[in-house]
Design a protein around this nucleic acid. Structure first.
Lengths: 199, 199
DNA sequence: CGGATTCTGCACCGATCGGTGCGAAATCGA
DNA sequence: TCGATTTCGCACCGATCGGTGCAGAATCCG
């Protein structure tokens, strides 16, 4: 796996640079994050960035992977919860926590970036769309399993429940971006989960 | 009110031009809507646009007023509904309808534009923020009145209910932008309104 | 000590950004 | 008809966009 290093070694840590790029994309969206902003935050020159990550689009995709494994991990973790209700709670509370972390941009990178992509980033647009679709499908499948196992009533609609939860989570992200406090959003989550199953 | 027209008359209808600008801003957000896109859609030259509307920022603010009076009118109309529950239904169904109108960009101009504004449009950012705050305050006041009138239980929290509904509406807008169908979003609304009051 | 290879800094590319200067065209009151 | 006034089309402004050419610096293997 580890290649023999030849030539001049790079003078920066790729992971650290990706972390800084993540913050910039998170804060400004895909198109709003200019090369000047990105390279300044990453502490490297344009040329080093292109040599290490390809181009802006590939950099964003790598950042997206990093986000998925870090702040956005709650999505995958939620479906592992033991009951359908616990899944819903983990998912929504994860959205609140990820969207209101101190020292990090507010809201969800996925929501913020997806809504601000123009014609320039068609590939990015497609990736974000399929990513969101996958998350929702994951929830749907999990709730279908809950129906099969009797954890949810037989007449419950996994598709609608999944859609409802992702909608609330999206709203939480928008609210967080607008400056809503974690406490206020936690209240929203309590309301959304007060009655279960919701459908 | 009507001034005496002197000099060469303009060769376009200002309202029609604003309508086209609305679509472009709605589709591309504030910063994503370039002068080239805007003027092409409006069918006028850059110079005519600046003479008629000032600059890009003022144009957007005028477009925002137009949106508020048109597709976004459901927000003000909702609080006029006779009962708290009818207010909530009118608000959420209005968000679905406005966000999935055929022949128009998906989602809510407010949400789409607000999330994609960068450092360039600080004024626009502030306006959008206060606009969203006003909408939420309007709902909160309406629910407070409902509590006072006995339409909602005395222990209901108007602030939380308003926050919950705006969060769901924001989520509906995000989902609509992502291509969700009106029917799917209507199901979400039914789930959100199934139990009342929610808090 | 070579070359071979890789990374870095700087200057630069064409394209596009929001915004303007200028002169011609079109309408007014007189 | 004649200025005064306003709009219009075109070309252009400096700034910034994402991306690159090039020369030198730093490391490898031999």
């Amino acid at each position: 796996m580890e290649q023999v290093r030849r030539g001049r070694p790079r003078a920066f840590d790729a992971n650290e640079a990706l972390e800084q790029a993540l913050v910039v994309f998170w804060e400004h969206g895909y198109e709003g994050a200019s090369l000047a902003l990105l390279t300044e935050a990453m502490g490297i020159s344009r040329k080093s960035m292109y040599a290490a990550f390809g181009n802006k689009e590939e950099l964003f995709l790598k950042v997206l992977q990093r986000y998925e494994a870090g702040p956005g991990a709650y999505v995958r973790q939620a479906v592992g919860a033991p009951t359908a209700r616990a899944v819903a709670r983990a998912y929504l509370e994860g959205a609140v926590r990820a969207g209101t972390q101190p020292g990090r941009p507010a809201g969800c990178l996925g929501v913020r970036a997806a809504l601000s992509v123009g014609v320039t980033g068609q590939t990015v647009q497609d990736v974000m769309t399929s990513w969101r679709a996958e998350s929702q499908a994951g929830l749907r499948d999990r709730f279908q399993r809950a129906v099969d196992e009797g954890d949810l009533p037989a007449d419950a609609d996994p598709d609608v429940i999944a859609r409802y939860l992702t909608t609330v989570a999206d709203g939480v992200s928008v609210q967080a971006t607008g400056g809503a406090s974690p406490a206020a959003l936690q209240h929203v989550v309590e309301v959304a989960l007060r009655h279960w199953p919701p459908a």
